[in-house]
Design a protein around this nucleic acid. Structure first.
Lengths: 193, 193, 193, 193
DNA sequence: GATGAATGAGATTTCATTCAT
DNA sequence: CATGAATGAAATCTCATTCAT
């Protein structure tokens, strides 16, 4: 009864939130039911089993991933383009926190999810590499830039910050979004000009 | 009977390995006992309870952390110093994989461990910032370098690669140590010269 | 399925009966479940834990204790009054056998229960002493009666018989209720006339 | 190492003391070993199993019971004789606390011990009844005394006080030995003169 | 559609007991 | 004689899942 969404939505949200705190195993069906404000057995009317909740979220993740890839429209300015890319990456992973984390943490138990997350990284890298190669050819960025390794570094850096933001909510360690885009991403990009 | 170490060592190793695959909760005492080749109840003669195994590993982690901090001896060449730092960081986190991962994954359940891991990051950052500030003052690196933000970026990058190496054993995504130090860290450092 | 009471009632009854035979520790959750005719895990849906069963019985005990105290209405005839008192005491302790016994046997492990049982004795003693003091003042019983010590003796005697009745079901040792009230209590009272 | 008795004696004492606090089941072999200052496995060199410790104590109990019965030498003064009897009963039960308590508490699990304790009561009763019958015949006590029932009452009373003394160490409820013999037993006896 | 009651498998932990030294 | 290390059975408790209403 937490809000006026449908039961199914409330269950998905409850699951997502709890996974952040407790991991997949620690997210018990009882906790999910309590947070969603329904009876425990109601879960099983909506989903085949506990794994079914996760499957549903993975489906949404995969659909959204296509969308996010299409949303990225580099304009040929490396600084702005990296900021744009980081922003999309961050928004996407935050929206799909639970899937992202389960894919990372419990890769052995859910190889298909681990795979989906893995593909996100690869895809993101590829999009960047392709674009920058194109920009190098057209002279927009210096031909001395080591495109592959710089992209690796960039992706590792924004990945690292996202992981920290999920692990620790205090801002001591991870760098909050705005500041991260303004200072760190921009600084990183400046070396590629 | 897995090997000829003491029972306690075999238990610690078994626990450590299993946590990587299954997380803390997924690492059942039965699995630990099976892998270590002892009876389940033997665990409880060596450790107060399941948490006790973790405590023992955390103690070793904390001791080693002091050692690792002392091992870092920058020589005033930014490229070599960053490579050295990354190497120590990587060795340390790999040696203490299980504690590092539990601190990251299950921060809500084990706040003291989350804290120990957090402090490692902070400490590493501080050591680098202090050294580089010193080097900027003595002219060894350019005074235009944005020390704080570059260090942030560097730490995020190596942190990101370590996390990936734990999540995925295939080398498609994370970058294997040698290559990472030679290509990526060196490339990163080159911008600070 | 033992009978048609609610599951909770059946569990409480099973626990109560088993404690008589086996003590608290010896009353395993498996035995309770078997006697109540339910699955072991069902216990934990009705009570927080094993101790929770006992707590429930202690609550009933405390409620009933107030009732029993109010039920005692001495009429000024010492024989009839002691019989009435003994009868109420006996009925109460028999109804709450399990709590009474645990309070007695396992006082170190359950100090709050030991206390509740202790208070019952004290309260019973006080009610008798007060009433008899009053009767002595109004001349209904001889002023030479040593009220405090006689009450002590009386309480010890009926306490002793109740304890024996719980320990041994054969009538060789403890004296069955009717006979005890008719012969022993009456005899005791006759000395106070 | 607690004292310089033999290992076996130390084990018997440890067991005895612990049973008072924790009951038979709660008296674990580990606790016994700790209190006796020996290794847990040493217990099994001295006794077949945990039950064997108890058996040894029961043997001593039975031997002592014969002795105690012989020690009772009534002199024909009902007050002094009851005091003497109560004293012997008290001393004996206190010396053999653990057996007495186990016989009382865990009668279902150790029927032979329950029996031994039961027999003590019966025997004590019989000795008193026989002696008082004799005294009634010789005119030493009034022929109007209801010997059987008075003896019952007396035995219940001293039994009650002994049980309380084991359950509660504070003197609020049970009556300490000296005072009990001087006030309560004497008072009880005065009615039989 | 949703609930409440119950279940069975399995997790952690305790404890008496054995065995090699 | 005594110890330290290990065991197996059983105890308490958790959790995903089912079923009747």
């Amino acid at each position: 009864m937490a809000n006026n969404n449908t039961t199914e939505e409330r269950l998905l949200t409850a699951f997502s939130d709890l996974v952040l705190k407790y991991g997949y195993r620690g997210t018990t069906t009882k906790k999910i039911a309590d947070v969603a404000g329904v009876n425990e057995s109601t879960i099983f009317r909506h989903f085949k089993d506990k794994h079914g909740i996760l499957n549903e979220l993975v489906n949404k993740y995969l659909q959204d991933a296509d969308q996010a890839a299409n949303d990225f429209k580099p304009i040929g300015d490396i600084e702005l383009d990296l900021i744009q890319g980081a922003k999309i990456y961050e928004t996407f992973t935050t929206t799909h926190r639970s899937v992202f984390l389960i894919g990372l943490r419990e890769s052995y138990q859910f190889p298909e999810i681990a795979d989906a997350v893995r593909q996100l990284q690869q895809r993101f890298k590829k999009i960047l590499v392709d674009k920058f190669t194109e920009m190098a050819e057209s002279g927009e960025i210096s031909s001395t830039v080591d495109i592959k390794n710089e992209t690796d570094n960039f992706v590792l850096m924004i990945f690292g910050n996202v992981v920290l933001s999920f692990a620790y909510t205090d801002a001591e360690l991870y760098i909050p979004s705005n500041q991260f885009l303004e200072n760190n991403v921009r600084l990183f990009a400046s070396h590629l000009k």
